[in-house]
Structures are given as structure tokens and as C-alpha cells.
């Protein structure tokens, strides 16, 4: 019997995969709503399938950043009314205050992966103080190196290379003196 174990396990795995695939065929719809109560941002995801609310379905919330999405806490399961409620932090930075928030179903046993997004003005506007960008400093770019540093650097480089040039010229002076000596002889 043992030699058939592998075969049976493979068959069962295939059957399980087929069953799971069919089970995941269910489509769920998510409707996102945003509200602010007493300066607390609340995001609600209402999940329905075939017109009925879906209960106990984990929903993940994330917010769009420059390259990827930043997850907001752990997944929250929908309640008896099909609503997953999230408290949204009020310190997510944003250029103009606008944030794109995503609610998604990921790798659920019964429902296909779904994602919806909505835009809301909950971001903390970042005010950059760029007044010192043009200042000369060690940390600045090559065009903004401190003047005294450039001057000292050029002075050191100039002195050293000047000395090297002087040494090379002395070699030619030796040659000139040698020629004079030849003429004398």
C-alpha cells in the first residue's frame, strides 16, 4: 500500500486545488467610505457579494506611497453588517494633503482578490524648508562647497603641483648646464 501513498497524495492535492480554485470564484465588491469624527479619521469598507453583506472577511488597508503601498495596521474582519472599520492615522505625510487609500481582499479561501481605492484629504501636508538649499556647506553638492574650503584645497593642490613642476624644470636646467659644459670643453 505504501508505494501508492505518493500517488494518492498527489491526486488529493490536485482535487483540493481544483476545489479551492472553484471556491475562490466568488466575487466580492468593496465600497469605501471615509468620515472624520472628533478629529479621528475612520475608514469603512463595506463588502458585499451577490447583493448580500459578507461577514468575517479579512480586509487589508494600505496607502499609496512613492513606489509601493504602505499597509495600515493588520487586516480587519468585516462585522455582521459586512463592514470593516479602520482607524486611519492622521500623521501620514503628503505633498498636497491628498492620500490614495486602498482596501483589498488578498488570498482568501472563498473570494477572489479584489482591490478598490479612494482619495481623501487626510494627509499631513509636509512643508519643506528649502531656504538653506543654496547655502554653501560640506554636505552640499559640488557647486556649493564652502568658498574657504575650495580656496584652501586649490592652494594646497597648486603648491604641491607647483613644486613638482619646479622639480621637472630643474631637470631641464641640468640639461642646459650640461650643454654649456659641452660647449666649454
Amino acid at each position: 500500500m505504501k508505494k501508492y501513498n505518493y500517488f494518492l497524495t498527489t491526486c488529493l492535492s490536485i482535487l483540493f486545488s481544483i476545489a479551492t480554485a472553484f471556491a475562490q470564484d466568488k466575487v466580492a465588491k468593496i465600497a469605501l467610505t471615509f468620515e472624520t469624527v472628533d478629529s479621528l479619521h475612520v475608514c469603512k469598507a463595506f463588502v458585499t457579494s451577490e447583493g448580500q453583506p459578507v461577514v468575517e472577511l479579512p480586509i487589508k488597508l494600505s496607502v499609496k506611497r512613492l513606489f509601493t503601498k504602505l499597509p495600515i495596521g493588520d487586516a480587519v474582519a468585516t462585522d455582521s453588517t459586512g463592514v470593516a472599520t479602520f482607524e486611519f492615522p492622521n500623521d501620514i505625510p503628503s505633498k498636497d494633503g491628498k492620500l490614495t487609500i486602498f482596501a483589498s481582499i488578498v488570498e482568501d479561501e472563498n473570494f477572489m482578490d479584489t482591490e478598490v481605492s479612494g482619495e481623501v484629504k487626510w494627509g499631513q501636508i509636509v512643508v519643506s524648508d528649502n531656504s538653506n538649499v543654496d547655502e554653501r556647506s560640506f554636505s552640499a553638492g559640488r557647486d556649493r562647497a564652502p568658498i574657504y574650503f575650495i580656496a584652501i584645497s586649490l592652494l594646497i593642490i597648486g603648491l604641491i603641483w607647483g613644486t613638482l613642476l619646479y622639480a621637472v624644470l630643474q631637470v631641464f636646467k641640468i640639461k642646459r648646464l650640461g650643454k654649456l659644459e659641452e660647449i666649454k670643453e
Binding site: T163, A167, Q170, I174, K175, L177, G178, E181, E182
Partner: peptide, 21 residues
């Protein structure tokens, strides 16, 4: 050898330059 003749002037230049370098 840059026309080296071993004259005192040449030695003087050579040694002075060596010292500087």
C-alpha cells in the same frame, strides 16, 4: 641622463631638488 656632466652646478641643483621633493 639629460646631458649630465657632473658639474658642481648640476650637483647643486640635483641635491636641492631632491631635498625639496
Amino acid at each position: 641622463s639629460f646631458g649630465w656632466q657632473g658639474t658642481p652646478e648640476q650637483w647643486q641643483i640635483l641635491k636641492k631638488t631632491m631635498k625639496t621633493l
